[in-house]
Design a protein around this nucleic acid. Structure first.
Length: 885
DNA sequence: GTTTTCACG
DNA sequence: ACGTACGTGAAAACA
């Protein structure tokens, strides 16, 4: 087999990658775009050319012989931008992890090293490929030395051998040096002969063969060209010398030392994780699968099917130790109809007990429900839900590695077991997608071979046992013990319970609404088509754009990256210009209600329970909030009456009412607390209307003289403050000039000086530390602040201002949820917490428990945290969500 | 899979 | 001078 050597011009390629890709950063603010581009290119080259030998050549800073020969050489080169420079050392580290040889030699450029190595390899019978973005290297092409030039940034490679050069330029690779001697090179500041460009140069070289021969025969030429050449003989000679890549530099190397030796997998994965190249982590992990079994780690893992004796012994051991690792798996998507396939339990993370009969589950009930025994696992909420149909409520869920990972870095979104494994150990264990497949072809857990399933879950439990100590250390280091052990972990059970309980819906009301909306939609459709003079898909922004802005010739006010914008704001501006506009707005509104809410909810009512069981996700948001999916119960319409009607659909079960408690102005209260601003605190202590008070301050009128418009403006300013204020944002929101908005903001900050100080300080803090904290020490890294991109950096400032506020509100309501849930249990009440909407909690309350539930909600929510201002809760009980407001 | 729109706090 | 409010999820169209 021919040996194949690939030599990469490291500086050239990383430069191309840097300029070809948009800004990328990891959470620490390390720029990674060039690293990413380089790495993907490296993989591509390895895939396509399967080199047996490989090397990456780098320039060193020291001046080369060319600088000494010609002081102007590369004089105009700008230095490397900082954002690229910081990627050089990591790149070299990565190459070391790939065990790819690096060539660097003082006094020579990468080209010369490449040329020398290439010629040597060629003599030794290698097939050589040179990868670079620099066309200078073409002079090295021959039958066995091929040059790969990057194209379109770095996404494509163009291949040249000696013949291809002759075909393309009409001269030999060697003659390219002569050509450059004549035409020069602007980027390297090689002068060449003035007045001679590529066309003339090629013509001359074709005719005379070389610069030297041309100089001997200038008398053949005539006119300007002759003059120019005769005047600049010296320039031509020196330019050729500069252009020539040296292929015999005194470098001693062993070509066999460039042989590919296989990767240091752990190092590569460690670096990919550090750079946050999640897609590469996945690909690289899969590529390595054939070589070693990464499914089980360590290989000492053993799985034992439970028998009576085994269970008895295990329970004894668990009771003695006081903890157990566990992971369960169920079949059936229906929350009320789940059937366990098995529970895997372990004490040491290596020996697993597999339990799959109902009898054995019951034998384990005592352990699972024991508040004395700590449960360690991965996505414990799922286990909690899996066991509820068996009448088992898991207690003391003490450590969940997915929740822990979220707490450690809430912006990462890599909380699956395979992500956690690769981050901490550089090892990939099998992902759910790899086990089951994805999309239509995906199989179910119950279709997996029992042994394969055991290995899969065994590996997860093993991971839990090994990663837990590392996460504990990180949690302690960041002083997040209270947040994790007293808030997030106890919340797992609360959310599992909410999910299991669900919320009752009245299907008939939903069907009535469906008919009502369908009739409205049909009517509106008709009218819209009449106005438009044709039928079209009103739901298509593209088609609608054509109708409005081309056919009806209305003035477009905003563009999206694909065409005209037709959003609500645009339509509102056009409202007076054509009767079709308001019809479209109304149509949009009703279609939204119909498709997302009526049809959406109808399709997701649980047949068995007649209720809707949304999933509450604890590891999604960057700020610490909870999110709700399938369906999203946190965005049920409320602002407009038409949509609000949907809340009549959500009803309390028999003998129950909904008790709805929502925090009043929690974010502004938190702001008052954090800033310690006297005026802001005063407003809340005196229980004033906060927006009126703000208006009174900003417009400098007594609070009684604040009118509706002033209050509205002040309200928008208050929102803006929470979001991280910008004059443009406020102007857009209020529909006023930017200048006016700026005045409002300045007016506000002049009155609330501590708010101004906080906003300045928090941005400084975030810049210095790289993150911000909430009141419970929840942490969010803000790499955006290190961006060189103006837009991103400004975003970073707003994130620094907003996250502590939004995040602290999330902390507070989570504390309240945990305490409310606990109180309900302690008092033996049957009422259940069933919903959280960021600043609102809903309990399905048994009529006879109404007073005590209201008292619990008020005291636990208002007392969740002690702030410099009181926390206030508004309460209401009614039989539907619509009425409980 | 991405884009646009719109529902909520 | 550079363009924007913070945080989510779902549906439909479109490529």
């Amino acid at each position: 087999m021919t040996k194949r050597l690939v030599i990469i011009d490291g500086n050239s390629l990383i430069n191309r990658a840097y300029y070809a890709l948009p800004e990328l950063m990891n959470k620490d603010g390390l720029h990674t775009n060039a690293l990413y581009g380089f790495t993907t290119m490296l993989f591509k080259i390895m895939d396509n050319y399967e080199p047996t030998h490989m090397s990456v050549a780098f320039d060193l800073k020291a001046p080369t012989f060319r600088h000494k020969a010609y002081s102007e050489y590369k004089a105009h080169r700008k230095g490397m931008p900082d954002e690229l420079r910081e990627q050089m050392a990591p790149l070299k580290e990565l190459l070391d992890a790939f065990k790819i040889h690096r060539l660097e030699l003082e006094g020579f450029e990468a080209d010369d090293i490449i040329g020398t190595v290439a010629r040597e390899a060629e003599r030794e019978g290698f097939e050589v490929f040179i990868v670079t973005g620099d066309k200078d290297a073409l002079q090295l092409a021959s039958a066995n030395v091929k040059i790969l030039i990057t194209k379109k940034g770095i996404s494509e490679l163009e291949e040249y051998d000696g013949d291809a050069i002759v075909e393309k330029f009409g001269i030999t690779p060697n003659q390219l040096i002569d050509l450059k001697g004549l035409m020069g090179d602007k980027s390297d500041n090689i002068p060449g002969v003035p007045g001679i460009g590529e066309k003339t140069g090629i013509k001359l070289i074709k005719e005379y063969g070389s610069v030297e021969n041309l100089i001997q025969n200038t008398e053949d030429l005539k006119g300007k060209m002759k003059e120019k050449l005769e005047e600049n003989v010296q320039l031509a000679v020196i330019s050729k010398k500069l252009a020539k890549i040296v292929t015999d530099i005194p470098v001693e190397f062993d070509i066999e030392g460039l042989e590919m030796k296989g990767f240091d997998r752990e190092q590569v994965l460690r670096l990919f994780n550090l750079f946050e190249f999640s897609s590469l982590v996945k690909r690289f992990g899969e590529a390595g699968k054939a070589e070693e079994d990464v499914n089980i780690e360590p290989s000492t893992l053993s799985i034992v099917n439970a028998d009576e004796k085994g269970i008895k012994e295990f329970v004894g051991n668990v009771n003695e130790k006081g903890y157990v690792y566990l992971k369960s798996v169920s079949k059936g998507a229906n929350i009320a109809d789940k059937e366990l396939i098995g529970i895997f339990m372990s004490i040491d993370g290596e020996e697993m007990l597999k339990i799959n009969s109902e009898k054995d589950i019951m034998a384990m009930k005592g352990v699972l429900e024991s508040p004395e025994i700590e449960k360690y696992g991965y996505k414990l909420k799922d286990d909690y839900i899996n066991l509820r149909p068996y009448g088992v409520c898991i207690e003391n869920m003490k450590f969940d590695i997915s929740v822990a990972e979220y707490i450690i870095d809430s912006a990462s979104s890599a909380y699956e077991h395979e992500n956690i494994s690769s981050k901490h150990f550089g090892k990939l264990i099998k992902s759910q997608e790899e086990l089951l497949g994805k999309g239509k072809k995906a199989r179910l857990f119950e279709e997996v071979e029992p042994d394969e399933l055991s290995n899969y879950f065994g590996a997860i439990i093993n991971l839990v046992s090994r990663v837990k100590p590392l996460q504990e250390e990180e949690i302690a280091k960041n002083e997040m013990e209270e947040l994790f052990y007293d808030v997030e972990m106890p919340l797992v059970e609360v959310l599992g319970n909410m999910e299991y309980e669900g919320i009752k819906v009245d299907r008939d009301i939903l069907l009535e609404l469906k008919e009502e909306f369908a009739a409205d939609i049909e009517q509106l459709e008709k009218k819209i088509y009449e106005h438009a003079g044709e039928k079209f898909n009103i739901n298509s922004p593209k088609q609608l754009g054509v109708i409005l802005f081309e056919k009806l010739d209305l003035p477009p006010t905003k563009k999206t990256k694909t065409g005209y914008s037709t959003n609500a704001q645009v339509l509102e501006k056009l409202s007076a210009k054509h009767p079709i506009i308001d019809l479209i707005s109304e149509y949009r509104q009703i279609v939204k209600l119909q498709s997302t809410y009526v049809d959406g909810l109808l399709g997701i009512i649980n047949e068995k329970t007649g209720r809707i069981h949304s999933s509450f996700n604890q590891t999604i948001t960057t700020t610490g909030r909870i999110s709700s999916t399938e369906p999203n119960l946190q965005n049920i319409p409320v602002r407009l009456e038409l949509g609000r009607k949907l809340r009549k659909v959500f009803i309390a079960k028999e003998d129950c009412v909904f008790t709805d408690a929502d925090y009043s102005q929690i974010e502004l209260r938190i702001l008052a607390h954090i800033c310690d601003d006297e005026k802001l605190k005063d407003a809340f202590i005196k229980e004033q209307d906060i927006h009126s008070r703000t208006a009174s301050e900003v417009f400098r009128v007594p609070i009684e003289e604040v009118d509706r418009q002033m209050r509205g403006a002040a309200k928008a300013v208050n929102f803006g403050i929470i979001y991280g204020i910008s004059d443009f944002g406020l102007s857009k929101n209020l529909g006023i000039p930017v200048k006016k908005a700026k005045e409002y903001i300045t007016g506000y900050l002049d009155r609330y000086e501590n708010v101004r100080k906080y906003m300045d300080d928090i941005v400084e803090y975030a810049k210095d530390n790289g993150y911000v904290l909430t009141l419970m020490n929840r942490r969010r890294y803000i790499p955006e602040l290190r961006s060189s991109n103006f837009i991103l950096k400004n975003l970073g400032k707003r994130l620094a201002m907003n996250t502590p506020i939004q995040g602290s509100a999330a902390d507070i309501i989570k504390i309240a949820m945990v305490n409310v849930h606990k109180k309900l249990r302690e008092k033996g009440l049957r009422s259940q917490l069933i919903l959280q909407v960021h600043d609102e909690l809903i309990i399905e309350t048994y009529a006879e428990e109404k007073d005590v539930v209201e008292e619990i909600l008020r005291s636990e929510m208002e007392g969740a945290m002690n702030l410099a201002v009181p926390l206030k809760v508004d309460l209401s009980s009614a039989s539907s969500w619509y009425d409980a407001k």
